[in-house]
Amino acid sequence: MEEKQTSSPSPLPPGGPWQRVQLARHPRRPHALDYIQRIFTDFEEIHGDRAYADDAAIVCGMARFMGAPVMVCAQQKGRDTKQKLHRNFGMPKPEGYRKALRAMRLAAKFGRPIVTLLDTPGAYPGIDAEERGQAEAIAVNLREMSRLPVPIVVFVIGEGGSGGALGLGVGNRVHMMENAVYSVISPESCAAIIWRDAGQAEKAAAALKMTAQDLAPLGIVDDVIPEPGEGAHEDWDAAAANLARMLEHSLASLKALTPAQLVDERYEKFRRMGSFFSETKSATLG
């Protein structure tokens, strides 16, 4: 909420996957709280996981969308150095995922829809995060999100960094902003593994098919939300308005479903993902 928009020119050319990666990480790109303050009213933040700490890289809160109560859970990056450190560069720790699950269960208990905004380079890879069970925290979220009997609408607004993003990403609808990316690995890490050179990230970004335009045909992303001008950084209000329209549409389409149908629909959506195999004849084991 503390972040103010200032316009800055961006000479980035449109087009390829690498440009989209740059736009997704653009220093002036709207972050979760920038969307939240434009789309929702009466936002009241919920802090802490009731077990260890409050993780500032994940922001959760009660809010109203067009007057109706919703729970918002979002990954939050900082803009200046101080904020970046405070938000841990948008890299959540286990307590962040556990806080989000607590907030989402609260929403489910009172029958409120859940909106999540994904924007993280990845879950934090550090000693303390490992000690407190980073993997376990994400795993539990994946399982528990799949059984919440309320509508869940997911938006990838910037960087969808692998498991760290997916930890809030199991929804009835999964949408991506036009210049957002969503990937199993960062292009830099991918390039470092394949070509032993992080400088080849541009090639990796193309190979990984991580843009919204690449992912929609694969059935992983439902809709691609248009961004104003050269990208969302040019006009935060317009970007937020486009996202709000999609949210309105998604919630309306889920309104008629019963709690059981919501769970089933979400299950079937993910059950179908990755039907990219064929039956071969070489069953060799006995």
Binding site: G163, L166, V184, L208, F270, G274, F276
Partner: peptide, 11 residues
């Protein structure tokens, strides 16, 4: 297999 692999976690 890119993001398709990631979605197997959720599946």
């Amino acid at each position: 297999e890119g993001l398709i692999s990631l979605m197997q976690l959720a599946k």
